[in-house]
Design a protein around this nucleic acid. Structure first.
Lengths: 204, 204, 204, 204
DNA sequence: AATGAATGAGCATTCATTCAT
DNA sequence: CATGAATGAATGCTCATTCAT
């Protein structure tokens, strides 16, 4: 359970293989669903054997955890690069929401997989760990933006924890509907709507 | 493939057993996760044999589908009973959001299970079918409320589809965070916040 | 294993039900194959419950055995009625072969089922018991015809056991090919050919 | 559905294991009957796990099909090697019948299994496919022998399809009786009788 | 005589994992 | 590094059988 991802001293090939396998896993999960995704299935799509996957990861749990972190880190980096370019807090908030949806739209399969992966957590502890890995950084980032805005006298005084929760929640909830049926949701409209509404809501 | 849940004339015992099994399944899923939830596990928790589950349901898919519909129908009925009691559109909207969170809070295990169950849909077709069963009625209900408000000259003209999407999305997204870590989210604060914000947003 | 079919004192309904169930079983086996034929499947085709089948038969083995005996007895009676009408041995032999094929042709589903049912015998003992029930009477009948012919100075002296074996074998072997693919075999041609050949073979 | 037995490049071990498993399956079927023959049972007799059988075969259908083809091919090769050594058509026919029975006698368990396996075909399509795989080559071989005899002016003109059907049928039908009770049938006598009779029948 | 709820053993199949090569 | 043979536990599901009603 608490085994490390894999011991230190990774070679280049080691790292490259892990990345390759994670990407293949993500694609397979998005295409076939988590329950249908076996080591054998991932290996087939990669032209390697399932034994090799077992060699590079400490079990399925390690692979899944790594895959989730990969998605989350990539999206986080994408958002950060857009938010950091802005000076004004309201623009930062708009950038956060806008770039979140941009990344989602450009990487649909990642989020299809992510929604599937939620079901792979068996215990309350794992769920909580996921929460810390996935939501804590997001809410922290949002809270920082809100605090900056307040300090710059642009934003009103508000419950930042709750506001961060609902902003992130709205993004995720819209994404979720789009994952289940992309036809049913206009991602750009929703992005614009949320952006406008939340900026108006937090401004003085 | 598209077999009905179970044909005609259900006896009292039949109905009671199905209900009992569904509730046990929901509890087991919430506790152990969908992937760990087997017929054997559910049966063990009930003190019956797994054969009996197979006797009352046409396979696992039938059980899962029935479980999801149970959650959705119960919540839908709860929300409807609260919304219908209100005359004014803005109060209807507040009732929708408020009762959504009330039901969620009172039935946490159902939603822990539901989030897990999202990952049980294998094909794009199943995902879409779920979307139609779960989201379409919600968005339709919200749109009706928004239309009523517009007709009563209480609400402004707005893109009702998008607004319904983001309202439902915000509710679900906040619920999601709470499912993963109830400590990290204050459901009542979030409910109040979303209620206020959306009412303000849609009013003329 | 050695349980009786069912205790004495059968009522009319009892007998009628057994007959009805046997016929339904035969039809289901012919249509779906023995391995796919469950009590439930037979019951469904009959509009009764599988519990009732269990009530009227001492287990599946009893039902299968009864079904086989039914086929065999009916065919035996049919053949006997045709053979007994003839005075001359060669005509009796022709009647035996001809009426065998007639019955087979008119009751294809019985023989499709019979071929399937061979696979239901698990032990050497059961196979031997079937042999005694199915082949001994046939070979005995044929031997009697051959002996009559010899005594009437119509047939030559020959190994009656072997001749009976090959005559019955030829009938069954042709039937078998026809069961697997009725298009591949012309039953009437085969019947005529065997009839002619064997009569010529045994005649002085 | 129509998956190949197993794809390309079989290694030595692969081939050896498949052969080993097929032979064990044949033996188990002959001893216990098809319906009692599970992967677990076969594996037990081999001292391996049932998982390994699943690893080497694409399901039970693949295993059974392979087993049947093994029997048929071995017998076919045996018969061919005996028939091809003869020049004269009547000797070819005698070799066909004689070597058929020789092979049957030396491999009783194979035919005990084969008779059981007849019942393993569920649909009419499978039965027909088996007919094509098993009977068509036999009847074709017999027809060729008959045609050669006719062309060599040794055999009379006759309906070759029907004659092939009854010759093969007689062989199979006698084998069938012997399979159910080896005591009841003298295979050598039957072989001699059929050989003599059919040669006399087809000769000019 | 008949039902249908319930059982329990058995089945083919899947799969992460191990390990000798 | 990489393979692929082998394992063993688990899974959904089927089914003959039992039995209270």
């Amino acid at each position: 359970m608490t085994r490390p991802s894999k011991p230190e001293g990774q070679t280049f090939i080691e790292e490259a293989r892990r990345k390759q396998i994670i990407d293949a896993a993500l694609q397979t999960i998005a295409e076939q669903g988590y329950t249908q995704t076996s080591f054998a299935e991932i290996a087939k799509g990669l032209g390697i054997t399932k034994g090799l996957i077992a060699y590079h990861f400490n079990g399925k749990h390690d692979l899944i955890t790594s895959a989730i972190h990969t998605i989350l880190n990539r999206q986080g980096a994408y958002i950060k690069s857009h938010v950091d370019g802005k000076e004004i807090a309201s623009e930062k908030l708009q950038a956060y929401i806008g770039s979140s949806f941009e990344y989602i739209e450009q990487n649909r399969s990642h989020f299809v997989a992510l929604v599937d992966l939620w079901g792979s957590f068996t215990s309350a502890e794992e769920k909580e760990a996921f929460s810390r890995a996935a939501y804590d950084p997001c809410r922290a980032h949002l809270k920082k933006i809100l605090t900056v805005g307040k300090n710059q006298h642009e934003f009103a005084k508000l419950n930042e924890q709750t506001m961060a929760t609902v902003i992130q929640g709205a993004i995720d909830g819209v994404m979720l509907q789009w994952v289940f049926d992309p036809e049913a949701v206009d991602l750009k409209d929703a992005s614009r709507e949320l952006s406008e509404m939340f900026v108006k809501r937090v401004k003085k």
